[in-house]
Design a binder for these strands. Structure first.
Length: 577
DNA sequence: AATTAAGGCGCG
DNA sequence: AAAGCGCGCCTTAATT
């Protein structure tokens, strides 16, 4: 590489691909040049990164790597045993700033769509036969130079934030999102410990011996035969909902679909085996032998996470259904010998976030030091915990019917500030206006057709039917924005939680990621860590401390607590829900 | 043959 | 209890 050049003052190192390697451009905190750029050969990049990281904090502040996509640059560093403390993921940050209300007057928001609005390098379609070539090219330097200048983009982002109506919030949001990108890359790299043998035993117990794809396993075939007899339908294909529905109706059952909860209300000897069939069929198709073959290698499940993949800022996952890992197979997630899993989830995260966001002291008090729903009951607003939960979810989702919807007004009397916040978010959405999370992530607005239909319905040739349809769509969008502010802010809390925790772990373990305790799984309000047995208790403490940090980052000194349930276990299935 | 829609269910 | 939010992904069935 280009000697041992060190940038001793800069706080940003911007990486871009140039002919013949990687260009690292040092910039100050405000984005001004801060020394000469250096060119690093691809093969030397991990060592260069390690060298720069080793400087630690400089006079100007901590070092941040600035790059287009974390998923593009970070894996090679991790593979070489390295780590990065901080980064700016330009593409993720770009997406936030393009739509944020706080930056709506910026040049960045005004520009037409460009390369930074396109999918990531990773996501760009690559023919499957070329996938391997593509990966190799990352290492051998034969890839073409980038045509999008990250230095210019970074400066545009700095300017957009500096000129925004909430620079502080956005800086936190961008830092949290970027930290999330690092966590996602690390979790994908480390993988979730997965015992294929445990999973296989579970499948065999439930379904019978393994069969080739496309063949119905023995247990399913047995149940199918019972169904055919009990419905007197020898040709029934239980895999086809339409076929099943026809058959049920022919048997005299009044039923609109084959949904589980609808079937559960029926009295017929075919119902119980049908529900059992559906349960096992789901296990087979979603997490059966094919899934195991495709997603588990060398004892690890390696899903690809999509940071900010959900409009609200929640993560999604590409492939493997990582965010829908059924409870029924979590017993296959087993810690290595000498290691433990630390499983933690935030209790009633969304109502707590709502209470804090709204500055609702009464609701915050209901959750102080106890289950928040119990606190709601104690306040006298409703009678049972189930009612409290139903009403709270109803308030956050916009329920109008059922028990939840019925109880919302009682909640509104007890917690007017919190309920007012979601009501106002819903009203904004019904008008077609955007809403924002605590840190400034902004909801999309309805597409032009939504507004056009509204205008038509209320014009001279609008009909009552058109108006009803438009109002229904408006209420639907209002339910989305109502939930957006809560779900999105909860996602920010979770990012902050993980970012803080990651920093705490990195302070203790500086070597290769998997040599020390590390995050291996995340689902919205729950995390799993794989940690050396002797350090499990310490890690559990850090998880708690990080939750306190997250509350402070988002809500400062507002008296809200975020209790966790933390379990140190050998397998994920044993962590109580 | 390939794509899209619908039905359904897993997760938070 | 199965409506009220956000998803991914499996299948079958319909469409191009």
């Amino acid at each position: 590489m280009d000697g041992g050049t060190r940038h001793d003052r800069c706080v940003h190192l911007v990486l871009s691909r140039v002919d013949g390697g990687v260009l690292a451009t040092p910039l100050t905190a405000s984005g001004e040049p801060d020394g000469d750029p250096v060119t690093v050969a691809d093969a030397d990049l991990p060592r260069y990164v390690a060298d720069q990281e080793a400087r630690g904090t400089t006079g100007g502040g901590p070092l941040r790597w600035v790059w287009d996509d974390t998923a593009r640059w970070y894996p090679s560093v991790l593979a070489a045993g390295g780590r990065v403390a901080r980064c700016v993921d330009l593409r993720l940050c770009h997406r936030i700033l393009r739509t944020a209300v706080a930056t709506r007057d910026s040049a960045l928001a005004a520009a037409p769509d460009g390369t930074w609005d396109a999918p990531t390098h990773q996501e760009r379609p690559v023919r499957s036969t070329q996938t391997q070539l593509f990966d190799d090219a990352l290492l051998d330097g034969s890839r073409p130079a980038d045509d999008d200048d990250p230095v210019a983009e970074f400066r545009a982002q700095l300017a957009a934030v500096a000129g925004s109506t909430d620079p502080g919030g956005l800086r936190l949001l961008l830092a949290a999102e970027s930290a999330g990108a690092l966590v996602a890359a690390e979790m994908r790299f480390a993988g979730l410990p997965w015992r294929a043998d445990v999973h296989e035993r579970l499948l065999e117990d439930a379904l019978g011996p393994r069969v080739p794809a496309g063949v119905r396993p023995r247990r399913l075939e047995e149940i199918a035969e019972v169904l055919r007899q009990r419905l007197d339908d020898p040709a029934l294909n239980p895999d086809s909902p339409a076929d099943v529905l026809r058959s049920l109706r022919r048997a005299g059952l009044v039923v609109d679909s084959t949904r589980k909860w609808e079937l559960q209300r029926l009295e017929h000897p075919a119902i119980e085996p049908l529900l059992e069939y559906k349960r096992l069929y789901r296990l087979l198709t979603a997490n059966g032998w094919s899934w195991l073959d495709e997603w588990v290698q060398a004892g690890r499940f390696h899903p690809e996470y999509a940071v900010g993949g959900v409009v609200t800022g929640r993560w999604a996952a590409n492939g493997g259904g990582a965010m829908q890992l059924p409870k029924a197979i979590r017993s296959a997630v087993v810690a290595d010998r000498g290691w433990k899993l630390v499983v933690a989830d935030a209790a009633q995260l969304e109502p707590r976030v709502l209470a804090a966001m709204a500055g609702d002291l009464a609701m915050a008090a209901a959750g102080d030091g106890r289950d928040l729903y119990d606190g709601v009951v104690a306040s006298g607003a409703v009678e049972t915990r189930q009612q409290a939960k139903g009403a709270m979810l109803g308030a956050m989702y916009g329920a109008t019917q059922g028990e939840g919807g019925r109880l919302v007004p009682r909640l509104a009397r007890a917690y007017p500030r919190a309920l007012d916040l979601v009501a106002r978010a819903a009203a904004a959405g019904e008008r077609g206006e955007p809403v924002t999370t605590r840190l400034g992530r902004t909801s999309p607005v309805p597409d032009p057709a939504w507004f056009a239909a509204r205008s038509r319905a209320w014009s001279v040739d609008g009909t009552a039917a058109m108006q009803r349809a438009v109002e229904s769509r408006a209420r639907s969008w209002g339910r989305f924005t109502r939930n957006f502010v809560v779900q999105g802010t909860a996602a920010e809390w979770a990012l902050s939680w993980m970012a803080s925790l990651r920093g705490r772990l990195a302070a203790r373990w500086q070597g290769p990621l998997r040599d020390g305790g590390h995050l291996v799984f995340f689902v919205h309000d729950e995390i799993v860590l794989h940690v050396p047995e002797s350090d499990a208790a310490w890690v559990a403490e850090q998880v708690e401390a990080a939750a306190v940090d997250a509350g402070r980052i988002l809500f400062g000194s507002f008296p809200i607590t975020f209790p966790l349930s933390v379990a140190v276990v050998d397998d994920y299935g044993s962590a109580k829900d």
